[in-house]
Each structure stands twice: as C-alpha cells, then as structure tokens.
Simulated assay, not measured.
Amino acid sequence: MDALELLLHRRSQPRLKAPAPKGEVLENIMQAALRAPDHAALTPWRFIICEESGLQKLGALFEQSAIDNGKSEKEIERAPQLPLRAPMVIVAIAKYTENAKVPRIEQVASASCAVMAMQMAAIAQGFNGIWRSGAYAQCDVVREGLRVGEEDEIVGFLYLGTPAFDTPIAPARNSADYFERLI
C-alpha cells in the first residue's frame, strides 16, 4: 500500500481478532511511533504494550475504576472485558517535561501523532486498530495502576489486531468545508 493511499483511506477498525502484530511488524509499529514530531528532542512519550495477561491486568484496572466511580453493575461487569476486544492494546502516554520552548500541548500532540503513526504502520502491514480514550484514560485508578505521572496524560488506548472484516472506505469529505485561505 502506498503512503498516500494509506493516508487518504485510513479508517479505524473496531472489530479485531488474533493475531496481533509481533516480531518485525511490531518493531516497525514501535519505530513509527518514535518518528513522531518531537520539538527539542524531548521524547515526550511512554508506551505500555498489553497482551494476554497484560490485557487482563488492564481490564482489572478498568473494573476497579468502574467500581470506585460508582458505575452501574452492567458497566462494572463490562469493564474487564473492554481490553479483550483486541489481541493487543498499546497505552500511549504523553510524558510531560517542563520546557520553555515546548509547551505541554505540543508534547501531548507529539504523543498523539505517535498513536496515529502506529496505526498507519499497522495498516500498512496488514493489521488495523482503533484509538480509544474516554473516562478510563482520565481515571486516577487507571493512571496510578499504570504509573502515569501527575503531569502526564494518557492520550489513548490503541487496540491492534487483525481486522475481523474488510474495513469499508469512508466517503471523501469536501475539503472546502474545513479549510480556508488567509489572504
């Protein structure tokens, strides 16, 4: 798949099955993350790969979060199953470093770029994924369980695996609805 085709037809895939990326394919995905824009070479990222028992541990954190936050019984029951929707979940964390030239928002944006780069690398190699965030990314139970620093931010959970079905191509959007020229 050529790079332009990849970018123009990128689409998240919520239905994922085994196998997960591994070996050289996974290394390519990790290396793609490390090529994200990085002003002042701060390397403002940290990634946690969850597979097998790691998915269970992440699910346990989600479950404890649901309990501690007074969620419904249904949500508490569902919480430990959430990471099991894919054979691999990569937790992406923006690791903040105070820097006069690189504001916090730019460091979070860098970590976010790394997530997209990982998904693109996965798709380019025949896998796919979906980037999820939500309340668990902001919850202290999850943050503490993953040793996320007070100033750091979980930018998302990248679910990766083999697409369970072909991902349909989304219709193109009209760029004029989103772009304007400053003259």
Rank of each mutant, 00 (worst) to 15 (best):
G129A: 15
E77H: 10
G126I: 14
N69M: 04
G126T: 13
I123M: 14
V91F: 04
V108M: 08
S110K: 05
G126Q: 15
I76E: 02
Q56H: 15
E63Y: 00
I123W: 03
M118S: 10
Q125E: 15
V108S: 07
T97C: 06
E106M: 03
Q64C: 01
V102Y: 07
K71L: 02
K101A: 04
W131Q: 05
A124G: 15
E98C: 03
L82W: 01
D68W: 00
L55I: 04
E75A: 11
T97E: 07
A124H: 14
A121P: 11
A124F: 09
G129K: 11
F127R: 07
C113H: 10
E75Y: 00
Q107E: 03
Q64I: 01
Q125F: 09
E75T: 03
E75V: 02
A117M: 14
E106H: 04
A79Y: 00
I105R: 10
Q81C: 02
E77C: 04
L55S: 00
Q64N: 11
G54I: 03
I76S: 02
E98K: 07
I123D: 04
Y96R: 12
K71H: 01
A86K: 01
A60T: 11
V89R: 12
E77N: 14
A121L: 14
A117Y: 11
A122Y: 08
S72A: 05
E51A: 07
A109K: 00
G54K: 09
F127M: 07
A122V: 09
G54H: 06
A109M: 03
M116R: 13
K101V: 10
A114L: 06
K95L: 14
P83I: 04
Q81N: 13
M88A: 10
A92G: 14
M120N: 13
I76P: 01
M120Q: 13
P83Q: 09
R78H: 12
K95D: 15
E52H: 09
M88I: 13
N69I: 01
P87W: 12
G126L: 13
K74A: 12
A124R: 07
T97L: 06
G59M: 02
E98L: 08
V102A: 05
R85E: 12
A111K: 00
A121H: 11
F127W: 10
A92S: 15
V91A: 04
N99W: 04
E73S: 07
I67K: 12
I105H: 13
A92V: 14
D68Y: 00
I90V: 15
L58C: 08
A86R: 00
S53V: 10
Q119Y: 06
I90S: 09
A66E: 02
A86C: 07
Q119N: 10
G54A: 04
V108Y: 05
P83C: 12
T97N: 05
A100K: 06
S65K: 01
S72D: 02
R78G: 02
A94T: 02
W131C: 04
L84G: 08
E77Y: 09
M88V: 11
V102D: 06
A117S: 15
N69A: 08
E51Y: 05
R78C: 03
I67S: 08
A92L: 13
